[in-house]
């Protein structure tokens, strides 16, 4: 495709990037000057260009995670100038354009940092802890083919809309990266709330929140101290109200698990 010539000025920045060859290697910041930066270039495209330059110079390119490049897959995950996903509001790293920076800027690029997200290489971390949380209970158990007609379960529009707000989470982990305590509460709360707000999600509601919180704790995330750094960086602007909601759900479920009568057939003697 013929490219459209940009009428805008090119400029230069310095990328100061965290380089670490592997989980047990030691890491450090390395400076990479970048010239001919177009304001219409995305931040990841700049990394592409820098990487091609490194390759040609026989140096190892910077490993960074990315895929869809349109803010929906949740793969990209850089902390830029101390803020997960960089200076924008409600965007993922891949939606950050160079017009957010100016000539001469030094841009500091680090991986998401949390014990539960071990570093793989350079800017890439392992976020499989999120998958384990999901596997513990982030679902409604419905066998394929066992579903009733979709319109037999009306869902009040307000609930559906709120559930959708929670469901837009892209699983990027920025909430964890931004939290002073590396807590995963926003992510887990979004999941728990999405299903808990729908009538379909009610039968497993208590079990789900207990199991998911347990899996979250086991993964080694920190504890929420209600500072809301998470929702400030969330690319989908998911509100921390869902955290309050999950707290409530969790307590209810705990007490119900203790005091609600159980059928003797379910083996719940103890």
């Amino acid at each position: 495709m013929v490219s459209e010539r940009s009428s805008k000025e090119f400029f230069a920045v310095t990328l100061r990037v965290w380089r670490q060859a592997g989980p047990s290697a030691s890491g450090r910041f390395v400076d990479y000057p970048a010239t001919n930066v177009s304001p219409d270039m995305s931040f990841l495209e700049l990394l592409d260009v820098v990487n091609d330059g490194l390759t040609v110079k026989d140096e190892e390119p910077i490993a960074f995670a990315h895929d869809c490049r349109e803010g929906i897959c949740g793969t990209c995950s850089c902390t830029i100038n101390g803020k997960p996903h960089g200076p924008g509001h409600g965007i993922a790293t891949c939606q950050l354009y160079m017009r957010s920076f100016k000539d001469g800027d030094t841009i500091i690029v680090e991986p998401f940092r949390a014990r539960a997200f071990p570093l793989v290489k350079d800017l890439v971390t392992d976020r499989s802890a999120f998958d384990r949380i999901q596997q513990a209970g982030g679902f409604i158990s419905v066998r394929t083919g066992a579903a009733p007609d979709a319109n037999s379960i009306p869902v009040p529009k307000d609930d559906a809309d709120l559930a959708m707000d929670a469901a837009t989470c892209i699983g990027c982990g920025a909430c964890v990266a931004a939290c002073k305590n590396a807590s995963a509460m926003l992510f887990v709360a979004a999941k728990v709330s999405h299903l808990g707000l729908m009538p379909q999600g009610q039968p497993e509601r208590d079990k789900r929140v207990l199991a998911m919180v347990q899996a979250m704790d086991e993964a080694g995330f920190g504890n929420c101290t209600n500072q809301y750094e998470c929702s400030a960086v969330c690319p989908k602007l998911i509100t921390h109200d869902f955290i309050a909601r999950m707290n409530r759900d969790y307590v209810k479920a705990l007490f119900k698990a203790k005091f609600k009568p159980v059928s003797s057939a379910s083996g719940g003697a103890g």
């Binding site: 979709a150 009306p154 869902v155 559906a160 379909q200």
Partner: peptide
């Protein structure tokens, strides 16, 4: 049917359908 039962938050009308 399957997706609605899984909790996919499809858009709804005010009547909940």
């Amino acid at each position: 049917d399957q997706c609605a039962a899984q909790g996919v938050p499809f858009a709804r009308e005010y009547d909940g359908l």
